[in-house]
Amino acid sequence: MKYMIFAALSMTAMYASAGENVNVAQQNLPDEHYHYSQHLDIAKVVKDSVDDPTAQGVVSAHLVYLDSKGVEHNLAYLIQGETISNG
């Protein structure tokens, strides 16, 4: 009887810890790099961020989005940073 209770608790703990590992893996998605004329299937934007929003010149930016199938993607792309006017 003690063995069955121990086995049931062990299995429950194993499944609980396996679920936590999946969530961590989903949060650390590898970056997909954007290429000009690439078709993007964006159904919902989850997060949009810029590495340094006050930098001048070309700056790295990231977009986390869900496609039409509900799959999460992390897109890395370049944007033009702030410019300084002479005058």
Score class of each variant (00 low, 15 high):
residue 10 S to V: 06
residue 73 H to C: 01
residue 31 D to N: 15
residue 33 H to N: 14
residue 30 P to D: 10
residue 7 A to V: 06
residue 65 Y to L: 01
residue 26 Q to I: 02
residue 6 F to E: 12
residue 61 A to V: 03
residue 16 A to I: 05
residue 16 A to M: 09
residue 55 A to T: 05
residue 46 V to K: 03
residue 1 M to F: 09
residue 30 P to F: 03
residue 61 A to M: 02
residue 35 H to R: 13
residue 10 S to W: 10
residue 76 A to V: 00
residue 7 A to I: 13
residue 29 L to G: 06
residue 57 G to K: 04
residue 21 N to D: 02
residue 81 G to V: 06
residue 50 V to C: 00
residue 76 A to L: 10
residue 37 S to W: 11
residue 9 L to T: 06
residue 58 V to F: 00
residue 3 Y to F: 07
residue 20 E to G: 02
residue 60 S to D: 13
residue 61 A to Q: 05
residue 17 S to L: 12
residue 14 M to R: 08
residue 21 N to K: 09
residue 60 S to I: 03
residue 13 A to I: 11
residue 81 G to Q: 08
residue 71 V to H: 03
residue 60 S to F: 03
residue 1 M to C: 02
residue 14 M to I: 11
residue 3 Y to Q: 10
residue 16 A to P: 02
residue 69 K to P: 00
residue 35 H to K: 13
residue 79 I to K: 07
residue 22 V to Q: 12
residue 47 K to A: 08
residue 7 A to C: 09
residue 51 D to I: 10
residue 37 S to K: 15
residue 16 A to Y: 14
residue 31 D to P: 07
residue 39 H to G: 01
residue 5 I to V: 09
residue 84 I to V: 15
residue 39 H to C: 01
residue 86 N to I: 09
residue 4 M to F: 13
residue 27 Q to F: 09
residue 46 V to D: 13
residue 65 Y to P: 02
residue 78 L to S: 09
residue 14 M to L: 15
residue 65 Y to N: 01
residue 73 H to T: 03
residue 39 H to E: 14
residue 84 I to W: 12
residue 45 V to W: 04
residue 32 E to K: 09
residue 57 G to E: 03
residue 73 H to N: 05
residue 52 D to N: 14
residue 59 V to P: 03
residue 2 K to M: 09
residue 85 S to P: 02
residue 80 Q to A: 01
residue 14 M to H: 07
residue 33 H to E: 13
residue 2 K to D: 11
residue 8 A to K: 08
residue 19 G to H: 04
residue 26 Q to M: 13
residue 16 A to H: 09
residue 15 Y to F: 14
residue 2 K to V: 06
residue 37 S to V: 12
residue 72 E to A: 01
residue 61 A to T: 02
residue 27 Q to K: 13
residue 39 H to L: 14
residue 30 P to V: 05
residue 4 M to S: 13
residue 3 Y to R: 11
residue 64 V to Q: 11
residue 81 G to P: 06
residue 36 Y to K: 11
residue 49 S to C: 00
residue 27 Q to H: 09
residue 2 K to P: 08
residue 57 G to W: 02
residue 2 K to F: 03
residue 52 D to K: 01
residue 45 V to L: 04
residue 17 S to K: 04
residue 36 Y to P: 02
residue 65 Y to R: 02
residue 40 L to F: 07
residue 18 A to M: 07
residue 74 N to E: 08
residue 43 A to D: 06
residue 10 S to Q: 05
residue 57 G to Y: 03
residue 25 A to R: 06
residue 67 D to M: 00
residue 74 N to K: 15
residue 69 K to M: 04
residue 18 A to W: 12
residue 33 H to Y: 14
residue 69 K to I: 01
residue 54 T to S: 03
residue 72 E to T: 12
residue 55 A to W: 04
residue 9 L to I: 08
residue 78 L to N: 14
residue 77 Y to K: 01
residue 30 P to W: 07
residue 20 E to M: 10
residue 71 V to R: 04
residue 78 L to H: 11
residue 79 I to N: 01
residue 32 E to L: 13
residue 33 H to Q: 14
residue 69 K to F: 04
residue 3 Y to C: 00
residue 28 N to Q: 15
